[in-house]
């Protein structure tokens, strides 16, 4: 059996740290998505973002962080805009509108990608969409600030996103809470619900694009959805849920990495598998308490 922690400690360390940062960041945003019953909007944006990235690459011919962030926010808002437009202007329901919006943008992205490949290679491939390159994170050049070695560039960037997110979540705690819990009440309090909605979508887009390279578009959805579900299973209070999301991030990154070494498979995939198992565990622990009827059966 391989002993990753002793043989190549730094490689393992940075992969696990990156995994923790990714799951925690996604889980924080995902908590609000779950409250707003918008888990699948995360799925939609994580797919449609391919379109924005391809366009950005074709226009700017570079993959700089700022370019990617701007492209992601633009595509994310475009996706949400299309969904709302279809829903408002026709009798097509939201679920179908979500599906139409993101698959069309994804298809357009793939077509542009194949056109771009004809003209010159673009650094975006199927593996990136599928399961990311978290295993190569430790190989990235380290970032130094004032002679202090902080760590590989993607890890530092991810940590920056997480810190930024934590600051936002703390500063705007009550606004986010009230607009998620009761939009009508928020409106009566004079809070602009629409701005918070689109703001959250913009943040979601930034989060997705920053985890895109590490874990891929679809596994990012798992990290958006599963940790908040785990937390919601165990607690009804928002601050506790955030703490549980961090716990989930720590457990799933460490155990997931261990699993990937044992099975010789993708670390990102293994982290998702461990995360799902953690949810099942939480479900098993809390099951007797939360027996409920499916929504349509609810009395009255």
């Amino acid at each position: 059996m391989v002993q990753p922690w002793t043989e190549d400690f730094m490689v393992s360390f940075w992969i696990v740290v990156m995994g923790f940062l990714v799951v925690a960041t996604c889980g924080l945003v995902g908590t609000y998505l779950l409250l707003r019953r918008m888990a699948l909007v995360g799925d939609a944006i994580s797919h449609s973002i391919l379109f924005g990235l391809v366009v950005a690459f074709m226009v700017f011919r570079s993959g700089g962080t700022m370019v990617m962030f701007v492209a992601a926010v633009a595509t994310g808002l475009l996706t949400v805009g299309i969904i709302e437009f279809i829903h408002r202007q026709s009798r097509v329901k939201t679920d179908a509108a979500i599906c139409i919006a993101f698959t069309t943008l994804f298809a357009a992205g793939v077509v542009l990608l194949s056109v771009a490949e004809v003209k010159g290679p673009v650094h975006l491939d199927a593996e990136c969409v599928l399961y990311g390159e978290i295993a190569f994170v430790p190989l990235d050049p380290a970032v130094e600030v004032l002679g202090l070695v902080l760590g590989p560039a993607p890890v530092v960037r991810m940590a920056g996103v997480l810190v930024g997110l934590l600051v936002l979540a703390t500063v705007f705690y009550k606004e986010l809470l009230v607009t998620s819990f009761d939009p009508a009440l928020a409106k009566s309090l004079g809070i602009r619900v629409g701005i918070w909605h689109y703001g959250l979508m913009a943040v979601l887009s930034i989060v997705i694009v920053s985890v895109f390279e590490a874990v891929g578009a679809i596994l990012a959805v798992a990290m958006l959805v599963v940790p908040p579900m785990f937390a919601a299973q165990l607690s009804d209070r928002l601050p506790v849920r955030f703490a549980l999301v961090f716990l989930h991030a720590a457990l799933s990154s460490v155990l997931g990495y261990q699993l990937s070494v044992w099975l010789n498979c993708s670390p990102a995939g293994a982290m998702v598998v461990v995360g799902a198992l953690l949810f099942l565990l939480a479900w098993a622990v809390t099951r007797p308490r939360r027996a409920a009827f499916p929504g349509w059966m609810a009395p009255n």
């Binding site: 799925d43 599928l130 399961y131 679809i218 596994l219 959805v221 798992a222 990290m223 958006l224 959805v225 599963v226 699993l259 990937s260 099975l263 498979c265 993708s266 990102a268 995939g269 293994a270 982290m271 998702v272 598998v273 995360g275 799902a276 949810f279």
Partner: peptide
Amino acid sequence: LSSFFGVGIVL
């Protein structure tokens, strides 16, 4: 969607 896909990626 995502956790089944994760299992698939592992496999």
